[in-house]
Measured scan of single mutants.
Amino acid sequence: AVSDRLIGRKGVVMEAISPQNSGLVKVDGETWRATSGTVLDVGEEVSVKAIEGVKLVVEKLE
């Protein structure tokens, strides 16, 4: 699937994400809805860990 190529890629949070609410991330110039187990603020760099349906699962870049 086209989304599989995104796993491991870096992105930037465009709309804040929390465990309760999905947000938006931009990866390779495309905007995706994303979820995370932690709070991520706009502008934070993330990496794509998995894909669930049409949402990316991301975590903060260390």
Rank of each mutant, 00 (worst) to 15 (best):
A1T: 15
V2D: 12
V2W: 06
S3A: 15
S3N: 12
S3M: 13
S3P: 11
S3V: 10
D4W: 03
D4E: 10
D4P: 04
D4R: 03
D4I: 12
R5S: 09
R5E: 12
R5G: 11
L6H: 04
L6M: 06
I7W: 03
I7M: 05
I7G: 02
I7R: 04
I7F: 04
I7C: 04
G8K: 04
G8V: 02
G8A: 04
G8Q: 03
G8W: 03
G8M: 03
R9M: 15
R9E: 08
K10S: 07
K10Q: 14
K10N: 15
K10M: 15
G11D: 01
G11K: 00
G11R: 00
G11W: 01
G11F: 01
G11C: 04
V12F: 07
V12L: 09
V12N: 05
V13Y: 00
V13K: 00
V13N: 00
M14S: 10
M14T: 13
M14D: 05
M14I: 10
M14W: 08
M14V: 13
M14A: 09
M14H: 08
E15A: 15
E15W: 09
A16T: 13
A16V: 08
A16C: 06
I17Q: 01
I17M: 06
I17S: 02
I17D: 01
I17K: 01
I17R: 01
S18T: 15
S18G: 08
S18A: 13
S18V: 10
S18D: 09
S18H: 12
S18R: 14
P19S: 08
P19V: 06
P19C: 05
Q20A: 12
Q20R: 07
Q20D: 15
Q20S: 15
Q20Y: 10
N21E: 08
N21V: 13
N21C: 06
N21Q: 13
N21M: 06
N21R: 08
N21K: 11
N21L: 15
N21H: 13
S22P: 13
S22V: 12
S22E: 15
S22R: 04
S22T: 10
S22Y: 13
S22L: 12
S22D: 14
S22K: 05
G23C: 02
G23L: 03
G23I: 02
G23R: 00
G23Y: 06
L24Q: 08
L24M: 11
L24R: 08
V25W: 00
V25R: 00
K26Q: 11
K26S: 08
K26M: 15
K26D: 09
K26I: 14
K26E: 12
V27F: 03
V27N: 00
V27I: 13
V27W: 02
V27Q: 01
V27R: 00
V27P: 00
D28K: 06
D28V: 13
D28R: 06
D28N: 08
D28E: 14
G29E: 10
G29N: 10
G29P: 04
G29Q: 08
E30Q: 15
E30L: 13
E30R: 11
T31S: 14
T31A: 10
T31P: 05
T31F: 13
T31G: 05
T31I: 15
T31E: 12
W32P: 00
W32F: 12
W32A: 03
W32L: 04
W32H: 09
R33Q: 14
R33G: 11
R33S: 13
R33M: 08
R33E: 14
A34D: 00
A34K: 00
A34P: 00
A34R: 00
T35N: 09
T35C: 05
T35K: 14
T35D: 09
S36M: 01
S36R: 01
G37V: 14
G37H: 15
G37L: 12
G37Q: 15
G37T: 12
G37F: 10
G37A: 12
G37P: 11
G37N: 14
T38D: 11
T38L: 15
T38W: 10
T38Y: 14
V39Q: 13
V39D: 08
V39S: 14
V39H: 14
V39L: 13
L40M: 09
L40T: 03
L40Y: 03
L40N: 03
L40E: 02
L40Q: 06
L40R: 02
D41F: 13
D41E: 12
D41P: 10
D41R: 15
D41H: 11
D41Q: 15
V42I: 08
V42N: 06
V42Q: 08
V42M: 08
G43H: 08
G43R: 14
G43S: 07
G43I: 02
G43Y: 07
G43C: 05
E44G: 04
E44F: 07
E44V: 11
E45C: 06
E45L: 15
E45D: 10
E45T: 13
E45Y: 14
E45K: 09
V46Y: 01
V46T: 02
V46S: 02
S47F: 09
S47T: 13
S47G: 07
S47C: 05
S47W: 11
S47E: 12
S47V: 12
S47L: 15
V48N: 01
V48K: 00
V48R: 00
K49Y: 08
K49W: 07
A50D: 08
A50W: 07
A50H: 07
A50T: 06
A50E: 07
A50P: 00
I51G: 03
I51H: 05
I51F: 07
I51W: 07
I51C: 04
E52C: 05
E52I: 13
E52F: 07
E52L: 13
E52V: 15
G53S: 05
G53V: 03
G53T: 04
G53I: 03
G53Y: 04
G53L: 04
G53F: 04
G53W: 04
V54F: 14
V54A: 14
V54L: 08
V54M: 10
V54C: 05
V54T: 15
K55I: 13
L56A: 03
L56I: 11
L56G: 01
L56F: 03
L56N: 00
L56S: 01
V57M: 07
V57H: 08
V57Q: 05
V57I: 11
V57P: 00
V58A: 02
V58Y: 00
V58G: 01
V58I: 03
V58T: 02
V58M: 03
V58K: 00
V58L: 03
V58E: 00
E59V: 10
E59L: 06
E59F: 07
E59M: 12
E59R: 06
E59Q: 10
E59C: 04
K60Y: 05
L61H: 11
L61V: 13
E62A: 14
E62G: 12
E62D: 11
